[in-house]
Design a protein around this nucleic acid. Structure first.
Length: 548
RNA sequence: GCGCCGGUAGCUCAGUUGGAUAGAGCAUCAGCCUUCUAAGCUGAGGGUCACAGGUUCGAAUCCUGUCCGGCGUGCCA
C-alpha cells in the first residue's frame, strides 16, 4: 500500500487543500475488482454530509483540481456513486519493482522494533503427558508470532512456562506406579481413579523398570518422588523432541516452582496484604477482585495452605514486567480464558501497565479422518498425538495447516487432506511455486544467462507481469497486518495469492527465450518473487524446497 | 443464567476501523502437456452471508433481539 500512497495521497491532499476542504479520514483501498482501477478513495462520500453536496459533485471538484505526473498515473476517474479511481501506468509498477529489488533478500524485514523487547509465552504444557494437536496449534501460533516480531526488528524472547508440582504431578507418579506394578508384579493392582490413562504411561513404566527393575516396588514417598521426577523428565524430553521436530526452540523454560524458591510468591502475598487487596475468610486468603471492577473475589491461598493457580500466574506476570519487556504476549487455548481478567486486574492494581500485555486466545482443533472425528484427549487413553501427525505428514504440512486459519475460529484438521501429497494439499501450491522458480534459474544458468546488474526492467509490461508485481507489493502489508492483528493466517493467504500470480504469469509468459534482454528482466521479476516466497514461508516455519 | 469464540457455496474457510457485481481451495462438470516442473493453467455451475428488526447515500461487516455449535464460569490447572 505504501508504494501507492506515497504517490497518490499527496495528490489528493493537494487538491483538497486547494479547494479549501477540511478532511480527517482520507483513506485508500485497492479495489477488489480491477475494473475499478488500481487504487481508490471514498473521500467524496465522507465529505458529502459535511459539505451538503452529493458525493459525485464533490468527487468532480476534487478530480478537476488534481495535478499529477502522467508518467506514473494514467488517469483518475469517477465511478459508481462517487468513488475516485486511479489507474496507474506500467511505469509506476516498474518503479515499484525497483524499490523492492533494492531490498533484495531482506524484503520483509523492518526496523520498527528499535530494540524493543518482546516476550512471547507459548506451549507451556505441564510435563504430565504428550503434546496433541491443540498444543501444536498453540506452538505454531506462538512461534509464528515470535518470527513476525523478529522480522519487524524486535528483540524476541520465546518462553515456556511450566509447573512440575502439585496434584497433577502426584497423579502422574501414581499412574506410572500403578502401571509399573501391573506390568511386573501385580496384574490387578488398582489404577487410580483420576489417573492418566494414556498409553504413554505404560511406556514410561517400562522405561522405569529398565532403569530400576524392582527397586521401586515399595509404595513409599521416596520411591514415588523418584517416579515423579522420572515421569517429568520423560514427558519433558518427549515434548521438547516434538517441538524440535516442529522447528521450535524456546529460549527460557520458566519453572513455576522458582517463584516459590525465590520468595516471589511470599513477596506478592505481602504486597497484596499491604495494599489491602487481600483478606482472610474461612481459613483461606482471598483476592479482592471485586474492588478492582470484577464480579467475584477469588481464593489465592486455600485453607489447606496451598496456593491456587491464580497466585503464581499473577506472580509470573509480575516477574515478566520486572524483567523489563516492552510487550508481553501470552498464547492461550480457549480453555484458559477464565483466568485472564483476574491476572490482568491484579497486575494492573500492582501498578503495571497492562496495555503492554497482549493475550491471544485460540480456539480448539478437531481432527477429522474419513469424515469422522478422531479423539485426542490424554485422559481417555487412546489418542492421536502431535508426534503421530508429524510421523505421517512432516513438519511443513503440520505447521501450515495449524496456522492457515484465523486463531479465533475452530480449526478442523483434515487428516486425509494433510496426507495428500498432491495438488489438493494447499502447502504444495506455495512450495511448488518456489521450486519452479529455482528450476528456472537452473535452466538460465545452463543457457549461459548471467544475472548481473545489466538488465532493463522497462521490458516488463504484460498484464501477467504487472499482476505479479501488484501481488509482490503486498508482502510488507501482509507482514505488518498479520503482526498488528496477531493473525498469522493473513500471511498464508497472502502467499497463496502471490504463488497464484506467479503460476499464471509462468503459464502465459515465457521467461527464458531467445530474447535475452527480456529473459533477464523477467528473471529479476521472479527473483523477487522467490525471495518473498522464501521469506514468507520462513516466517511460517515452513521450508522452501528448491526441487519437488 | 452469565462471559468469550463461532454460524458466509455441497465441504473447509477468507472477507468485519461500513463501500462498487460477497471470494479462495476442495468436490462436480468441460478444456490445455513436441517449448522454462501438469503438485500447473483456463472455463462452467453452485449463495435468503443463521433468523428478525434497526442505524444510512451504502450493511456479511455497526446496534438490538432470537436460534444453533464450541469453550469457560471451583478453596482444579
Amino acid at each position: 500500500m505504501k508504494y501507492y500512497l506515497e504517490i497518490i495521497q499527496p495528490i489528493i491532499e493537494r487538491s483538497l487543500d486547494r479547494l479549501g476542504i477540511l478532511y480527517d479520514d482520507l483513506k485508500f483501498e485497492i479495489p477488489s475488482n480491477p475494473d475499478f482501477g488500481d487504487i481508490s478513495t471514498n473521500i467524496a462520500f465522507k465529505l458529502s454530509k459535511k459539505l451538503k453536496n452529493p458525493p459525485k459533485l464533490i468527487a468532480e471538484k476534487i478530480v478537476d483540481n488534481l495535478e499529477f505526473d502522467l508518467g506514473l498515473i494514467e488517469k483518475a476517474k469517477i465511478e459508481g456513486a462517487g468513488f475516485i479511481n486511479f489507474y496507474l501506468s506500467t511505469e509506476f509498477y516498474i518503479q515499484a519493482l525497483k524499490k523492492l529489488l533494492s531490498k533484495g533478500t531482506n524484503i520483509g524485514r523492518f526496523d520498527l522494533g528499535y530494540g524493543k523487547r518482546v516476550n512471547v509465552e507459548y506451549v507451556s504444557v505441564n510435563p504430565t503427558g504428550l503434546l496433541h494437536l491443540g498444543h501444536g496449534r498453540n506452538a505454531c501460533i506462538g512461534d509464528t508470532i515470535s518470527n513476525l516480531y523478529e522480522w519487524l526488528g524486535y528483540d524476541v524472547t520465546r518462553e515456556y512456562y511450566f509447573n512440575n508440582a502439585g496434584n497433577q504431578m502426584t497423579m502422574l507418579a501414581n499412574s506410572i506406579y500403578a502401571r509399573y506394578m501391573q506390568l511386573y508384579f501385580e496384574k490387578d493392582y488398582p489404577f487410580p481413579e483420576d489417573g492418566y490413562h494414556g498409553e504413554y504411561i505404560i511406556e514410561i513404566a517400562k522405561d522405569l523398570y529398565d532403569h530400576y527393575a524392582d527397586k521401586l516396588k515399595d509404595n513409599n514417598d521416596n520411591n514415588l518422588n523418584l517416579i515423579k521426577k522420572f515421569g517429568e523428565n520423560w514427558c519433558f524430553n518427549k515434548i521438547k523432541k516434538t517441538l524440535e521436530r516442529l522447528r521450535i526452540r524456546q529460549d527460557i523454560y520458566f519453572n513455576e516452582d522458582s517463584l516459590y524458591t525465590d520468595g516471589k510468591i511470599d513477596a506478592l502475598l505481602n504486597e497484596f496484604k499491604s495494599r489491602q487487596l487481600s483478606y482472610e475468610k474461612d481459613g483461606a486468603i482471598w483476592l479482592a477482585l471485586s474492588q478492582l471492577g470484577l464480579e467475584n473475589d477469588r481464593v489465592i491461598v486455600k485453607s489447606s495452605g496451598e496456593p491456587t493457580y491464580r497466585l503464581p500466574d499473577i506472580a509470573y506476570h509480575k516477574d515478566k514486567f520486572e524483567r523489563g519487556y516492552d510487550l508481553i504476549i501470552d498464547i492461550f487455548g480457549a480453555d484458559h480464558i477464565a483466568t485472564i481478567p483476574d491476572v490482568l486486574a491484579a497486575v494492573s492494581a500492582l501498578g503495571y501497565d497492562i496495555s503492554k500485555v497482549k493475550v491471544l486466545i485460540h480456539q480448539f482443533v478437531t481432527l477429522f479422518e474419513d469424515g469422522q472425528q478422531v479423539k485426542m484427549s490424554k485422559r481417555t487413553g487412546k489418542s492421536y498425538t502431535l508426534d503421530d501427525l508429524l510421523d505421517e505428514v512432516g513438519p511443513d504440512v503440520v505447521r501450515f495447516f495449524l496456522i492457515m486459519r484465523s486463531i479465533s475460529t475452530h480449526l478442523e484438521f483434515d487428516l486425509n487432506l494433510a496426507r495428500e501429497q498432491s495438488e489438493k494439499n494447499p502447502i504444495y501450491y506455495l512450495q511448488y511455486a518456489h521450486a519452479r522458480i529455482c528450476s528456472i534459474f537452473e535452466n538460465a544458468k545452463s543457457f549461459g544467462i548471467i544475472l548481473d546488474d545489466d538488465y532493463d526492467l522497462n521490458l516488463i509490461g504484460t498484464k501477467y507481469e504487472i499482476n505479479l508485481i501488484k501481488s509482490l507489493l503486498g508482502f510488507e502489508d501482509a507482514i505488518l497486518s498479520a503482526t498488528d492483528k496477531s493473525e498469522p493466517h493473513i500471511l498464508c493467504d497472502y502467499l497463496k495469492t502471490i504463488a497464484q500470480a506467479f503460476h499464471i504469469f509462468y503459464h502465459n509468459d515465457r521467461i527464458i527465450s531467445q530474447n535475452l534482454e527480456l529473459a533477464k528482466a523477467r528473471l529479476k521479476l521472479i527473483e523477487m518473487t522467490k525471495y518473498i516466497l522464501k521469506n514468507g514461508l520462513s516466517i511460517l516455519g515452513v521450508s522452501a524446497p528448491e526441487k519437488m
